[in-house]
């Protein structure tokens, strides 16, 4: 294994990303970025067998269009982590912000803490591609908006009452699980809460165990709790909207 350490302090994202590209081309299998302070587009569009360790705060669009690498962030991330990501793993030892997993098609994102608004928006699945977003804390409004596939799991480890409004607005595929209750009035247009089946519980258990491994948390009390499952009312919500259908 070839490890490369880069001190990111004061380096513009464009330069930093070229340094990362050079390191990958030179055969690095692990890249450690020290002193990251909001640099954007880290591993954007990268298709390589490489591991990235970020120390500090990763900027917008971390792992956007990413296709394969594994990223660990020791800190928080800004908006758009995993934007249209295809494959790979992002593990964040901190909080995520808005549109985590936007239009993501595959791969996994694990956030130790809270996530912001419109998380999992328009996530989609296709054949073997099945995107996963797991957050240990809570989520803000419009969770899983416009969702077309994949899974969003909110573990709510702090047991705070869930207050994110408009959950699953426009959802037409995929599934959202929230630990604890999600009052009916928080559900968005096109979303409904249903009972969990054995397969749901199995999936939650697997993902909670994976979360536990990354962040050193005992998953048992988490996955044994009560969850709310939110799914689309229809996979073709606008089928009757036009005169030709």
């Amino acid at each position: 294994m070839k490890e490369v350490v880069i001190d990111s302090k004061g380096i513009h994202y464009k330069v930093l990303n070229f340094m990362i590209e050079d390191a990958i081309n030179a055969g690095a299998t692990k890249i450690v970025l020290e002193n990251v302070n909001g640099q954007r587009f880290l591993l954007d569009g990268v298709n390589a067998d490489v591991e990235l360790e970020v120390h500090g705060t990763a900027g917008d669009d971390l792992a956007a269009f990413m296709n394969g690498p594994r990223v660990t962030v020791y800190g928080n991330v800004q908006d758009g982590v995993g934007n249209t990501m295809n494959r790979g793993l992002v593990v964040i030892h901190g909080d995520g912000r808005d549109i985590v997993g936007h239009s993501m098609r595959g791969g996994k994102i694990f956030v130790k803490g809270d996530v912001g608004y419109r998380v999992g928006i328009h996530m989609k699945q296709y054949e073997d591609n099945y995107p996963v977003v797991v957050a240990g804390g809570t989520a803000m409004d419009f969770l899983g908006e416009y969702m077309a596939g994949g899974v969003v799991l909110i573990l709510n480890i702090g047991d705070a009452p869930f207050t994110g409004d408009w959950v699953g607005t426009g959802i037409h595929g995929g599934v959202i699980y929230v630990r604890g209750d999600v009052p009916e009035f928080l559900l968005g247009i096109g979303a409904k809460a249903t009972d969990l089946e054995a397969s749901d519980k199995k999936l939650i258990k697997e993902l909670a165990e994976e979360y536990g491994r990354y962040f050193g948390v005992d998953p048992k009390p988490i996955y044994e709790s009560r969850f709310t499952k939110i799914v689309p009312i229809s996979h073709r919500p606008y089928a009757k909207m036009y005169t030709d259908d």
């Binding site: 699945q125 296709y126 416009y146 596939g149 595929g173 996979h235 073709r236």
Partner: peptide, 12 residues
């Protein structure tokens, strides 16, 4: 398009 057969493709 990389989306499932038969599902609506909604462009917001």
């Amino acid at each position: 398009r990389m989306i499932p057969v038969g599902s609506d493709a909604l462009s917001p």
